[in-house]
Design a protein around this nucleic acid. Sequence first.
RNA 1: GGAGGAAUACCCAAGUCCGGCUGAAGGGAUCAGUCUUGAAAACUGACAGGGCGUUUGUAGCGUCGCGGGGGUUCGAAUCCCUCUUCCUCCGCCA
Length: 424
Amino acid sequence: MLDIKLIRENTEQVIELLNRRGGDFSYLIDLVEKDQRRRELIIEIEKTKAQKNETSKKIGLLKREGKDVSEILLQVETFGESLLDNEKELKELEEFIYSGLLNTPNIPNESIPVGKNEEDNLLLKTVGIIPAFDFEPLAHWDLGTKLDILDFERASKITGSRFTVYKGLGARLERSLINFMTDLHAHEHGYTEIIPPFIVNRDSMLATGQFPKFEEDAFRVVDERELFLNPTAEVPTINMHRNEILSGDILPIKYTAFTTAFRQEAGSAGRDTRGIIRQHQFNKVELIKFTKPEESYFELDEMLKNSERVLQLLGLPYRVVTLCTGDLGFSMRKTYDIEVWLPSYNTYREIGSISNAEDYQARRGNIKFKRTKDAKPEYVHTLNGSGLAVGRTVVAILENFQQKDGTIKIPDVLIPYMRTDIIK
RNA sequence: GGAGGAAUACCCAAGUCCGGCUGAAGGGAUCAGUCUUGAAAACUGACAGGGCGUUUGUAGCGUCGCGGGGGUUCGAAUCCCUCUUCCUCCGCCA
């Protein structure tokens, strides 16, 4: 959520920066005007309340002395009416402003490229060598089926489309990657392991920015409570500290969380229908940080390195791009995407995304810190990154490390987890 | 699933039946000071925070604040409704 004070004081500039995402954010002018009226009302209401409080106190004192209060009681009734009307108007204004703010995305960082879509993303670097096959490489869905490690047909019998059964060494590869990634971040990169709940409530979805705008992307649990399947570990893990004031000396907090993520993929009906690139359910190892404002961009770059390390150790070719304003996620000010080379697509595909939300989620979730015991609380900055998407890593390994005979060579770092150096 | 109990400031805890100088007793912890070569102990003092509004102001003032939300009342920690969480016992279950 953006700070209404910031919008109030820099209306033009905020609108201009937001417009870089595409769309028209001039409605913020109306929001600022409503905010003006809101503050006028607060002054009036609080004046009346102060009067009322004082009179009530007086009644208490007089009653204690056994004096007659009927006259003063009549007098106090007149406060009521104007208060009721004003409070009703104030509530409506506040709801309007709050809803407006909840539906307004984060301001893009001024340094990131202005652009319409992924074509305008800025290439930062390309790492590794694209494999040259002396045979016709197969797509992972063919490899998976031939090796009997991915079963799409049975998954659709069990549930429906966009689900997969992992079987045998396929299942083990998935599980090996989860452990390998988590071990790497926990032991070598200094993150604390987390396994959060995979079901979250509405407030959590609201704090990280999935709701209210992207409710259709979530799986809802049919229940009298309003609960949703976790769409990304960012949601439960950032929300661990919702409504908390953290002590400054424990920052930055670094978590690596394993979750299974569930997404409707509502807007992607016809896309990536084959294979496991785009599933309703997939596993992810995520990196989450809570930092002081002045440290967040340093920590963002560190996080990118931590994510890249996974691909480097696995020996997968990838590239890193800075997302342009048009491709930037709703809650984020700056995002790097890591894209891995996929032979079947003959291109790089997103395998991870590392973002700084600055204080946007912290403000929605009321997550603060104090520099010292007596200091005024300030909002933390929240960061999250993939460390990485496990399913897509499986795809990358199958496709990049396939051999002429249809077997898959296992990267050295995974052999201890896999207990084999080949899938055949 | 059934039957009970609880939620008060950093922690513990009184107040809630019978609404009014309770914007919240008391204790612990913490911080500052006295004493001491230094420390401990003892003693003295400070200790509700956070949001919002006003304001040049981390000053002052106002407002809200006793798990969350709503209501009754001139006035609510205290009465009513509702939700959440935790605890005890029974049942079921990995």
